[in-house]
Amino acid sequence: MTTLYTKDHEYLSIDGDTATVGITDYAQNSLGDVVFVELPAVGKQLTKGGDAAVVESVKAASDVYAPISGEVVAVNDKLPDAPGTINEDPAGAGWFFKIRIKDKAELDGLMDEAAYQAFVAELG
């Protein structure tokens, strides 16, 4: 399983033609305590760069954009009632949704782990 990253601090864990999407540890740390999350409906067709989810901390609201195009095949139902999971375990239990990858070519511009860590390090 490969994990890729976007410049908007989302991760995609790729398993065959499906990707599990969430926000990175850097993103959850920047947001602060998450108090609300809105997930897309299962079956929704997402377009790369379009709105996919909403996360809100005590202070601010933030959009989560679809990192790639495809159909939502599962969402993390436990998240809306326990949004703090996103802070506690962003890469694990805090996942947002699973998407069926429409076009693997869209993965080309994404960063691998090393590139993402370098990207975050540059942000300071």
Partner: peptide
Amino acid sequence: PVQYPLGVLGEH
């Protein structure tokens, strides 16, 4: 300081 390591929720 907008928050310390405890975080806004915990500080509140």
